[in-house]
């Protein structure tokens, strides 16, 4: 596993551009092996019995215990608004006002939800506090993300839902930004996660989860997974290899084990 902390003002897109230029030794990624390791692990945990309600594992399943502050309604709103800003930046769409544009985009994307209702219920002070936080995070995002060239085929808010174990387990994922392509001969895909929290061990687990889900979904492992914290401006980039994928599988299984024990 390679982790790269970029120099202070290098954008995430620059970092990926550099990494794509750097020749790496070819690693044969075993996507079929990943699927079967996961299937074997699920069988040993669940057996043949089908749970009445499927176990759902998401990136937040790894982050929950370690970073509870990001999962308050306030933290989730901030994250949702920054995601919308990122989507506008990724397609080079002009932003007139960071906060109001993010709010308008978020409401249109989200529709009616508990979080949108919670936003509507904020008093003036809370709303002003949210606005200033979003603007601060938005500035970091504008400085540190960079705009992906259209030849990199940027896709935003890409969802995944992988059914495993005969439907007893669902892996749900949401990638903020996907760039590059997988043509079947090899993958040049990079998965990018933007977070308003600080980077910690849970984020590394989330990145490995993204890599495993993408591998299961397309049959091809991505080349990189990366994250940018708009709280600190810190960037992480991991090259995807078999070790990373296997660790990801192990973490999914131990999370499932905990879910089974709790039910």
């Amino acid at each position: 596993m390679t982790t790269t902390a970029a120099p202070p003002m290098m954008t995430l897109i620059d970092s990926l551009r550099d990494a794509r230029r750097t020749a790496t030794s070819e690693i044969a990624l075993d996507s079929a092996g990943i699927r079967s390791a996961l299937a074997d692990g699920l069988y040993s945990l669940l057996g043949e019995a089908q749970p009445t309600t499927p176990y759902v594992i998401r990136p937040s399943s790894f982050r929950h215990e370690l970073a509870p502050s990001s999962y308050t309604p306030f933290g989730r709103m901030r994250g949702a608004l920054i995601t919308q800003l990122m989507r506008l930046i990724a397609i080079d769409f002009p932003i007139n006002n960071i906060f109001t544009d993010a709010v308008a985009a978020w409401r249109a994307s989200e529709g009616a939800s508990e979080l949108v209702e919670a936003f509507a219920g904020l008093d003036d002070d809370e709303r002003a506090r949210l606005a200033t936080e979003v603007v601060a995070h938005g500035v970091v995002l504008q400085q540190r993300l960079g705009t992906p060239p259209s030849a990199w085929l940027p896709r935003t808010a890409v969802r995944s839902a992988i059914r495993l174990g005969g439907g007893g387990v669902i892996l749900r994922d949401h990638i903020d930004l996907v760039i590059g392509s997988a043509n079947g001969m090899g993958s040049g895909v990079a998965l990018v996660d933007i977070t308003t929290a600080t980077l910690d061990e849970s984020m590394e687990k989330a990145l490995r989860f993204h890599a495993v889900v993408e591998t299961l979904k397309s049959g091809l492992a991505p080349r990189f997974v990366a994250t940018l914290s708009t709280a600190t401006g810190q960037l992480w980039r991991l090259n995807v290899d078999n070790e990373l994928l296997n660790r990801g599988v192990g973490e999914i299984l131990s999370t499932l084990d905990a879910l089974v024990a709790r039910r």
């Binding site: 397609i91 769409f93 544009d101 993010a102 308008a104 249109a108 896709r155």
Partner: peptide
């Protein structure tokens, strides 16, 4: 509104690319 057009473009571009 202007920013919603941006999200409409982002969503349709993602669909088309995939």
């Amino acid at each position: 509104d202007h920013p919603i057009v941006g999200i409409v473009v982002a969503e349709a571009t993602t669909w088309a690319t995939q």
